[in-house]
C-alpha cells in the first residue's frame, strides 16, 4: 500500500523537479482538497494581475489527478460522476472526509493493466505520446516491487 501523494512526490522529483514547490504546497492539504484544487487549475482574469492565459504546463496536477483516479478505481469507487460529486458535496457539508488516497500493492498482471490505464489517462489529459510513455514508466516503476527483487522480478516496463 502506497499513498498517492508519496508516489506523486517521487514521480515529480524524477520527472519535473522544478515543480517540487507545488508538491510541497499541496502537501499541506488533505487529498480531497488537493484534488478539488487541481481540478480547477487554470488561469484567472483578475484585476491587477500580470496578465492571463499563460499556462506553463505543469505535470504535477496531471500525475496527481491520474493517480487519484486510479486509486479511487482500485478502491472500488466510481469517480467523475454527477452522483459522486453530489455525494462529495454532501459529505463536505456533513464535515465528513474521504479516506486518504492509497494504491495497494499490485501483482505483475495488475501492474501491466495499470500501465495501460495510466498511459491512456495521461494521453487523454493532453500529454504527447512520448511524454505520456515516459511518465507512465516512471509511475509504474514507483508502484512496482522494490528494486532488490532483481532482474528476474516483475518488470512491467519490459
Amino acid at each position: 500500500m502506497v499513498a498517492v501523494r508519496d508516489v506523486v512526490r517521487a514521480v515529480v522529483t524524477e520527472a519535473a523537479p522544478r515543480e517540487l514547490p507545488l508538491v510541497d504546497g499541496l502537501a499541506t492539504y488533505d487529498d480531497e482538497t488537493v484534488v478539488r484544487l487541481l481540478r480547477r487549475t487554470g488561469s484567472r482574469r483578475e484585476p491587477l494581475g500580470f496578465g492571463w492565459g499563460e499556462a506553463v504546463g505543469l505535470l504535477t496536477p496531471v500525475v496527481w489527478l491520474v493517480l487519484d483516479q486510479v486509486a479511487q478505481r482500485l478502491a472500488g469507487k466510481a469517480v467523475d460522476t454527477t452522483t459522486s460529486r453530489a455525494r462529495g458535496l454532501l459529505r463536505r457539508f456533513a464535515r465528513g472526509r474521504r479516506a486518504p488516497a492509497d494504491i495497494p500493492s499490485l501483482t505483475a498482471d495488475e501492474l501491466a493493466a495499470l500501465r495501460a490505464e495510466v498511459l491512456d489517462l495521461f494521453t487523454r489529459r493532453g500529454l504527447d505520446a512520448r511524454a505520456a510513455a515516459e511518465l507512465t514508466d516512471t509511475v509504474v516503476r514507483r508502484l512496482g516491487p522494490p528494486a532488490d527483487e532483481g532482474p528476474g522480478g516483475p518488470n512491467p516496463a519490459r
Binding site: L22, G25, L26, L37, L38, R40, T41, G42, S43, R44, G49, F50, G51, W52, G53, E54, A55, V56, G57, L58, P61
Partner: peptide, 8 residues
C-alpha cells in the same frame, strides 16, 4: 496552487 500561469 491552482493557478498554472506564470503570473501573479
Amino acid at each position: 496552487l491552482a493557478a498554472d500561469s506564470a503570473g501573479a
